[in-house]
Design a protein around this nucleic acid. Structure first.
Ligand SMILES: [Zn+2]
Length: 676
DNA sequence: GCAAGGTC
């Protein structure tokens, strides 16, 4: 044990710094068959003695330093990098890492940043070396998997510091800090001035567009209005076999067209099978899991929230049961020992048969690859370590990951789809279809889909009779309220946030009291609505994803040496100074607007709800509903063939339309408000 | 106290 101490005291070693403990262990084991494992305050580091040359491998746990300021005022731009454990609530566990790295840095002769090969990893390692060691003796090791081969290779190719990445990374921190801290302080300060109350408000490049997305979707859903289309469906029979079938012109735009087709069909009363088409469809295995696909599937299959799934996945990772979960990659490189992993997993009865099949059908163990990539990690896969005593949700998630992994080695799912056309009289054709599975392929392992729909057992020229026929209204595009999962997928589609932060940022919006969950999905609270409106009006840059796009352009320019970090930051300061001075000049006005929502006097309320009345005595939601109803009513009447009074009555009761539209229709019926 | 980004 004292050997560890000796080495540190002697100094003159290369200190390799990794981003996480697991990576430090992998590096140590790649560089030596017998790394010496040392402990300091329960934190492990490794020592390797080779031909007089000593290497020490230690790790942090993510960012050890963060931007911080002593100033309580705003606008504020005088931030500096400080140890997180000193300034951040909940970061106290980093103190041990800080002290160990600080101790190991004192006598090192050389420092290697071996953090993940992405811009955050470049910043994490750089800050440790700059602030605890010696920047001039800093180097960079680059690898994207933790396999022995790649680690050894990257160790041989250790290069100089990657200042392009470091500068871009530091700039990202500064820009987010400038935008986030200043606008959050402005919101809080104005709120405090107007109400006398201290509450925590926040805004930022990622969270604010996400909030606005929920807000916009909510208004869209509440004020949804569309005339119906008309689905004509008949139930046919052949001997005792019954099946339903839709008119090929369905959905009809006009009800009278559907009614005429119905009348014609009822006159003929029978049809004949005029065409049968059968085709095979091959569906390849789903791609390997990245975190957001895992979150999506765990929500679809088990109802887990994205942050819950992430927490369980992190536990499984720490138990060494699965690989690193915070990845965007859908790729499983051949350097992963798939054969060993599958052989190990085959001792588990529930996977034995499927793995046996992989061995026979895919003996080189080549998995299907997805499209998405990650600079530092492969897709999520089981390590092959056999779990003991896994229970409940942890077991469910582990099983999901294992099944997905096995399925990527399996054959295509083969479906048979049959489409049958039935002519009724001379003009009308009905169609019915079904799907059956010819060969299950990967679905045997990843069994979380139900696919089969009975195939109609009919032959060409069969005569079938119409048992019944009916017209149903059909609403094409009713928008759905967001769920945590759909919001996370939306963030991913817009490329805002990262695998590690999206679920967390959604939870922050709830913690701020901006959002709440209902049985139908997420809706903004009054506070969420008024913050959304204030941001739209006074900090519109934060209300959509274009700010992220412009950050990306600038960071890329820094990486390519076309711009300097200080120029980009200077530009951001100027923009922010302007925004803040404009907000300060309108302090009272903004404060009044905020207060109007948190405490709306009775005489200022919307005719139909408790929100403030903004236009024609209606709140933004009911006004938006009134506008859509007023614009679309004529089309509704034309397509349904109903008069105005009937239309309004039907709209009032129609649950396929937005709730605010129904409330507005009801108020029109009662003559409380009029169409515009 | 406030961002977004790492990871325990
Ligand atoms: Zn209202």
């Amino acid at each position: 044990m004292s050997l560890c101490k000796e080495v540190i005291e002697k100094g003159n070693y290369t200190l390799i710094i990794s981003e996480k403990p697991k990576a430090a262990k992998a590096i140590a084991e790649a560089l030596s068959y017998k790394p010496i494992s040392c402990k300091d305050n329960n934190i492990t580091y490794y020592v390797i003695n080779n031909n007089e040359k000593t290497t020490v491998i230690a790790s942090t746990a993510g960012h050890l330093f963060t931007l911080s300021t002593n100033s309580k005022d705003y606008p504020v731009f005088d931030y500096e990098w400080v140890p997180r454990w000193l300034v951040e609530k909940g970061a106290f566990h980093l103190k041990k890492y800080y002290y160990l790295l600080s101790k190991l840095s004192k006598r090192a002769s050389e420092y290697v940043n071996a953090c993940d090969y992405d811009i955050e990893g470049s910043v994490i390692g750089y800050m440790i070396i700059k602030l605890l060691g010696n920047e001039t003796k800093g180097k960079r090791m680059k690898f994207s998997t933790l396999t022995k081969e790649e680690l050894l290779n990257s160790f041989k190719k250790i290069g100089p510091f990657d200042y392009d990445m470091i500068e871009a990374g530091i700039c990202r921190h500064e820009l987010d800090w400038i935008w986030g801290i200043n606008t959050s302080r402005a919101l809080m300060h104005i709120y405090k001035q107007a109400s006398g109350k201290n509450i925590v408000l926040s805004s930022g490049r990622v969270q604010s567009p996400a909030l606005i997305e929920v807000f916009d979707r909510y208004i869209e859903e509440r004020s949804f209005f569309s005339p119906p289309k008309f689905q004509l469906t008949a139930v046919f029979s052949k001997d005792s076999y019954k099946f339903s079938s839709s008119h090929i012109s369905s959905p009809f735009e006009y009800k009278k067209d559907a009614e005429e087709a119905k009348k014609r069909a009822l006159n003929v009363k029978r049809g004949n099978v005029s065409d049968i088409k059968e085709e095979k469809e091959r569906i390849p295995p789903p791609p390997p899991f990245n975190l957001s696909d895992l979150q999506y599937e765990a929500s679809r299959i088990y109802g887990f929230s994205p942050s819950y799934t992430q927490k369980i996945a992190e536990d499984l990772y720490l138990d060494v049961l699965i690989s690193y979960p915070r990845t965007n990659s859908q790729k499983l490189p051949p350097s992963i020992p798939h054969k060993n992993i599958l052989e190990n997993l085959s001792v588990l009865k529930e996977y034995e048969k499927q793995i046996e099949e992989v061995k026979k059908r895919n003996p080189s163990y080549i998995p299907r690859q997805g499209r998405k990539e990650d600079p530092a990690h492969p897709a999520i896969y089981p390590t092959g370590k056999i779990p003991k005593d896994l229970k409940g949700d942890k077991l469910k998630l582990y099983d999901l990951i294992v099944r997905r992994y096995i399925s990527t080695f399996m054959d295509d799912l083969v479906l048979i789809k049959r489409r049958v056309k039935i002519n009724v009289g001379e003009r009308d054709v009905f169609e019915t279809n079904g799907t059956i599975i010819e060969s299950k392929g990967w679905l045997k392992a990843y069994k979380f889909y139900t696919i089969e729909k009975a195939i109609p057992s009919l032959k060409l020229n069969d005569i079938v009779s119409i048992e019944s026929i009916k017209i149903a209204s059909y609403y094409p595009s009713k928008p759905k309220l967001h769920t945590k999962t759909s919001l996370l997928k939306w963030m991913e589609s817009q490329n805002i946030g990262t695998e590690a932060t999206r679920a967390q940022i959604i939870e922050t919006l709830f913690k701020r009291g901006y959002l709440k969950s209902t049985s139908k999905g997420i809706i903004p609270t009054k506070l969420g609505i008024v913050v959304s409106l204030a941001l739209k009006k006074y900090v519109s840059e934060l209300t959509d994803v274009s700010l992220t796009r412009s950050f990306e352009v600038r960071l890329q320019e820094i990486r390519e040496n076309k711009k300097s970090r200080s120029d980009v930051v200077k530009e951001a300061r100027e923009v922010m100074s302007k925004i803040i001075s404009q907000m300060k000049a309108q302090n009272e006005k903004i404060g009044k607007e905020l207060m109007l929502y948190s405490n709306t006097p009775k005489d200022k309320r919307c005719i139909l709800c408790e929100l403030p009345g903004e236009v024609n005595g209606l709140c933004i939601i009911h006004y938006s509903a009134l506008k859509k109803l007023s614009e679309g009513l004529e089309e509704w009447m034309k397509k349904t063939g109903e008069d105005k009074e009937t239309s309004i009555s039907k709209i009032e009761k129609n649950k396929s339309l937005g709730q605010a539209v129904r409330e507005v229709a009801s108020a029109i019926k009662n003559k409380t408000i009029i169409l515009i």
